[in-house]
């Protein structure tokens, strides 16, 4: 555990809590892609199956459980409790275009051809692209509420901090996780355009982020 890794985990947690509280307090999930949230719930489910097989640390177990519970609670709020506010019309990204190639890649490139390892690899690849329905929705509607952009900022910052963590670990321990690093770079690249808009429009302006 180093400072980048810890800051990355905290950033990830902050992002998920921001989104949950936004929906809970406003009683609305307007502007939020339910599809992206289902994909993230799927990411955590397929990655954290090792909760049943190995114990790593209390920190590790608690964080995994918190991520799982919050991701399913968010999906519940969107599709059940506040489904009246769900904008299914604009949440029209075809997730099979992500799931099919990601599943295929997980079978081709993994650390071991075992169910848990393939599911872990699937979760790493899926996480890299899971935000695409949300970014697609923002592009389609042309705007995002500032609280939604704060959520996206912390979610992007999380993987960027993990990249710093991997650079640090490579130099200090000689550690290199090829699957996670390559996917992490791809994942972070997806947020670069958003980071630019966030700094130039949300932080310097006020209120909503609207696209040109």
């Amino acid at each position: 555990m180093n400072i980048f890794r810890l800051a990355g985990d905290v950033s990830h947690l902050v992002a998920i809590i921001i989104l949950f509280l936004k929906i809970w307090k406003s009683k609305s999930c307007a502007g939020i892609s339910g599809k992206s949230q289902v994909l993230f719930a799927l990411v955590f489910t397929s990655r954290y199956l090792d909760l049943f097989t190995v114990f790593i640390s209390a920190y590790n177990t608690i964080m995994k459980l918190v991520f799982l519970v919050l991701s399913y609670a968010t999906v519940y709020l969107i599709y059940m409790r506040f489904r009246g506010s769900y904008d299914s019309e604009n949440d029209s990204f075809r997730v099979e275009f992500l799931l099919v190639p990601v599943t295929g890649l997980a079978f081709l490139e993994n650390y071991a051809f075992t169910p848990l390892e393939i599911l872990w690899t699937f979760s790493i690849f899926l996480e890299a692209v899971a935000i695409m329905p949300q970014l697609f929705m923002i592009t389609k509607t042309g705007e995002a509420e500032s609280i939604t952009t704060h959520y996206l900022f912390f979610l992007g910052l999380y993987r960027a901090l993990y990249l710093a963590n991997w650079v640090w670990r490579y130099h200090t321990e000689g550690f290199f996780d090829q699957i996670a690093v390559v996917s992490g770079v791809v994942q972070t690249i997806f947020y670069c355009d958003f980071f630019y808009l966030y700094v130039t429009r949300v932080l310097r302006g006020s209120g909503k982020m609207s696209l040109p």
């Binding site: 890794r5 985990d9 090792d50 190995v54 590790n60 995994k64 550690f175 290199f176 996780d177 996670a180």
Partner: peptide
């Protein structure tokens, strides 16, 4: 450096 996976990372 061999490619390896760290089970601790989230």
């Amino acid at each position: 450096v061999d490619s390896q996976k760290d089970k601790d990372e989230l």
